[in-house]
Every structure is written in structure tokens, then in C-alpha cells.
């Protein structure tokens, strides 16, 4: 029987515990009812808002990261393009160049003109004693044939579209007036250039007409850059394979 009492005692104890807990729970529930519901709502909405803001930050950081990657790639591409442009500007003649080469100086045949004027003024033709645009043009072509890699006349660099012409008795190179003596500088192998020029038709012609013409070689000389423009109003790039 004592065992039964013990059990009963335990049961009663637990029941008491249960009742007291329940009571507390009720009290808390009552307190909840009294609690400002708005405060809890505010906290809940703040929590939601903060979570959304955190998401926005994560997304922005990702976007910024992507942009930074793009920009560093763009800078790599820019550097590549700049290097290409540098090479092209060199080919185009837009950069001063240095190297070995020769200087050809040719002048009007003033002595011959004076002599002719004195000895036979009747048949004297002044144009026979001056250097014409053609003479310079053919000398330049001969230098190109001899393998000249860059050419300048009286400090004017020759490029693709350069032309040598005269207007009246004045020679224009790249539409700029130049005056005698004409100094043609050509970069390349000095010996080869000299040899080829001395065998060329134009050189022989000028020599035969007693024009003063002189070739000097140099191991290092500098040709200036072309300062003009390349006309490209009508030019369009022909895409490879485009017909």
C-alpha cells in the first residue's frame, strides 16, 4: 500500500507543476495581450526591411565586381589597340624615324646658266638649267626602287599620298613650297642606295646636264614625321571577302 501512496504523491506533485506552469503561460499570454502590438509589428517589418537591404547590397557588390572586371579587360584591349596604332603610325610616316641612309643634294645649274647666258644669249633657255618637279620625282622613285625605307625632301616626309609638282617655277612637296638646293634624305642601306642611285637614269641625266648633285652617306640620321593629313573622304574599308 505504501507504494501506492508514493505514486499518488508523485502524481499530485506533477499535477501541481503542470497547473502552475499553465498558470504562468496564461499570465504570459495576458502580458502579450497587453504588449503594444505595434512595437512587435515594427520590429518584424524592420527585420524584413533589413533583410531586403542586405540583399540589395549583395547584388550591388556583385554588379560593381562585374564592372571592375569589364573595365580591366577594356584597359587591356585599349593598351593592345594603342600598341597597334603606334606601329601603324610608324608605317604611315607619322613618327620621326632614325637609321642609316644617304642624303642627295641637287641644285639648279646656276654656273651653266650664267655661262650659257653670256656665250649664247639667243638660244639660252633658263628652264634647261633649273631642277624641275619631274627630276625630283624620278630621283625619289629611283630611291624607292633602290630599297629606301623612308624618304624626306627638304625636311618634308613622303607618305603614301605625297606628290611632287611644280607651280610656275616653284616645287611643291605635300603642297608645301620648297626651294633649291633640294635635299633628299633616304633611309636604308647607304652603300646599296648610293650604288643604285648612281646607276639610275635620272642621276645619269642630271650628271650629263652638269647639275650639281652630291651623295653623302650617314650611319645615323633622323627623318621628321609627316604633319599633314591623309584624305579619306571617299575611302571605305573593304571587308574581307565582301564583294
Amino acid at each position: 500500500m505504501r507504494k501506492v501512496y508514493l505514486s499518488l504523491l508523485i502524481v499530485s506533485l506533477f499535477s501541481g507543476l503542470l497547473v502552475s506552469w499553465q498558470l504562468r503561460a496564461n499570465l504570459i499570454a495576458e502580458a502579450q495581450a497587453k504588449q503594444e502590438p505595434s512595437l512587435v509589428d515594427i520590429i518584424k517589418s524592420l527585420e524584413q526591411e533589413d533583410a531586403a537591404l542586405e540583399e540589395t547590397i549583395a547584388k550591388l557588390r556583385q554588379d560593381i565586381d562585374n564592372l571592375q572586371k569589364d573595365s580591366s579587360q577594356g584597359q587591356g584591349r585599349l593598351a593592345q589597340l594603342q600598341k597597334e596604332l603606334e606601329t601603324l603610325r610608324l608605317y604611315a610616316g607619322l613618327v620621326p624615324v632614325a637609321g642609316s641612309g644617304i642624303t642627295v643634294v641637287v641644285d639648279d645649274n646656276n654656273a651653266g646658266a650664267q655661262a650659257a647666258q653670256k656665250s649664247s644669249p639667243a638660244t639660252y633657255r633658263p628652264e634647261d638649267y633649273i631642277i624641275h618637279d619631274k627630276n625630283v620625282l624620278y630621283l625619289v622613285n629611283d630611291l624607292k626602287n633602290a630599297g629606301a625605307e623612308a624618304i624626306a625632301i627638304n625636311g618634308l616626309r613622303l607618305v603614301t599620298t605625297s606628290h611632287i609638282r611644280c607651280v610656275g617655277t616653284v616645287i611643291l612637296v605635300n603642297s608645301t613650297r620648297i626651294a633649291p638646293p633640294y635635299e633628299i634624305q633616304a633611309l636604308g642601306d647607304p652603300e646599296a642606295l648610293t650604288a643604285a642611285l648612281q646607276q639610275s637614269l635620272e642621276y645619269a641625266y642630271l650628271k650629263s646636264r652638269d647639275f650639281p648633285i652630291k651623295i653623302t652617306t650617314a650611319t645615323e640620321m633622323v627623318l621628321p614625321a609627316y604633319n599633314g593629313v591623309f584624305p579619306s573622304e571617299h575611302l571605305r574599308l573593304l571587308q574581307a571577302g565582301g564583294h
Binding site: A92, F230, L237
Partner: peptide
């Protein structure tokens, strides 16, 4: 670059 390629002659052109 395109302009210089055309003017130096290292690119094919039309016009």
C-alpha cells in the same frame, strides 16, 4: 586605326 590602315594601304578599300 581603320583610317590609317586604309591610308597606308595595308587594308583593302573601296570607293
Amino acid at each position: 586605326l581603320t583610317r590609317l590602315r586604309m591610308s597606308t594601304g595595308i587594308a583593302p578599300v573601296k570607293g
